[in-house]
Computed example of a mutant assay.
Amino acid sequence: MDTPDWNDLRYFLAVTAAGSLSAAARSLGVEHTTVSRRIEALENMLGLRLFDRFARGWSLTDAGRALLPQAQRVEEEIHALLRQASGAGSDFGTVRISAPPAIAAHWITPRLPALRAQLTGIQIELGAEPARVDLSRREADIAIRFRRPQAPDLAVRIVATVQYYLCAAPQYLASRKSEEWEFIGYDESLATTPQQEWLNAFAAGRPFAFSSNDLNSIAAAVRFSAGIAVLPDYLAAGLIIPGINCPVQRDLWMVIHDDVRKSPRVRRTADLLAELFSTAAR
């Protein structure tokens, strides 16, 4: 029997996790016909039918379920090999940084010229992503996140502490009394963030005019006088409402997988990025 193509196993695992061809295609960033073709190639090579195809989705056959644990172990070993290779790599190449969209746009991007000036031979790839990336799968080399991960194979350090303020456009404040204020906040997907919980308590039943899962949209709405919001220090210039103390502070964490941290280029990039964060916070 021929050896399976690792990429075909990857498509098999993607369909298993997603439950449908179209969802797997979206997660892989390919056309659904590509997924179907790769699954068919794997089935032909193994001489087994791995999925039952239904209109509502694809379901593993008994043979597919039997092979799933082994395929997952192969995936883990492949990612471990790639992490080790990255850790043993040269001083030059690409370093992928993942950060929340507003941090990527307003904190990291303005400092890229300073970062690049000290990283000759290293290309920076910046992913603006609200969801956590999987560092064990090398979806990024360095992640910047507001929550500290608990996995034991991750190296973490605080690179900044973000202060939050209650904010409004000056013309908005001049046009109405405080009891007439309307608020702008996160939608339900981010309702448990500390800044949103504090804003809910401060609003004390006064209406919310607008909600979003995107901090950049919230900040733009404040600047265009749509209402009052809690904004981080890097978006609050010229908008801070005097006399109101918002106690919310959040630590910003840099996260790197232990294997990848051994890479000279990742280590150099992480140290310089942390230094830029620290300098900006002073």
Results as ranks from 00 to 15, higher is better:
Met1Leu: 04
Pro4Gly: 04
Trp6Tyr: 11
Asn7Trp: 09
Phe12His: 07
Phe12Cys: 09
Gly19Asn: 02
Ser20Arg: 09
Leu28Arg: 00
Val30Trp: 03
Thr33Trp: 14
Ser36Arg: 15
Arg37Pro: 06
Arg38Val: 11
Leu42Ala: 10
Glu43Ile: 13
Leu46Val: 00
Gly47Met: 00
Phe51Ala: 13
Asp52Phe: 01
Asp52Arg: 02
Arg56Gly: 06
Pro69Ala: 04
Gln70Phe: 13
Gln72Tyr: 08
Glu76Gly: 14
Glu77Ile: 11
Ala80His: 00
Ala80Phe: 05
Ala80Val: 01
Arg83Lys: 01
Gln84Val: 14
Ser86Asp: 14
Ser86Ala: 13
Phe92Ile: 11
Gly93Arg: 03
Thr94Tyr: 02
Pro100Val: 13
Pro100Gln: 12
Pro101Cys: 11
Ala102Trp: 15
Ala104Leu: 12
His106Cys: 12
Trp107Asp: 10
Ile108Lys: 06
Arg111Cys: 08
Leu115Glu: 11
Gln118Asp: 10
Ile124Glu: 14
Leu126Ser: 09
Gly127Ile: 08
Ala128Cys: 03
Ser136Cys: 07
Arg137Val: 13
Arg137Lys: 15
Glu139Phe: 13
Ile144Asn: 05
Arg145His: 09
Arg145Leu: 09
Asp153Phe: 03
Leu154Pro: 00
Ala155Thr: 07
Arg157Gln: 04
Tyr165Cys: 03
Cys167Lys: 08
Leu173Trp: 02
Arg176His: 02
Glu180Ala: 15
Phe183Asn: 04
Ser189Leu: 02
Ala191Ile: 10
Ala191Tyr: 03
Thr193Tyr: 06
Thr193Cys: 05
Trp198Cys: 05
Ala201Cys: 09
Phe202Glu: 15
Phe202Gly: 13
Arg206Glu: 15
Phe208Val: 13
Ala209Lys: 00
Ser212Val: 03
Asn216Gly: 14
Asn216Lys: 13
Ser217Thr: 09
Val222Ser: 03
Arg223Pro: 00
Ser225Asp: 04
Ala226Ile: 06
Leu231Met: 11
Leu231Tyr: 05
Leu235Pro: 11
Ala236Trp: 04
Ile241Lys: 06
Pro242Val: 00
Cys246Pro: 06
Pro247Cys: 03
Pro247Leu: 01
Arg250Thr: 01
Asp251Glu: 00
Trp253Lys: 00
Val255Pro: 01
Ile256Pro: 02
Ile256Ala: 01
His257Lys: 00
Asp258Leu: 14
Ser263Tyr: 07
Val266Glu: 12
Arg267Tyr: 15
Ala270Thr: 15
Leu272Ser: 00
Leu276Trp: 14
Ala281Leu: 01
Arg282Leu: 12
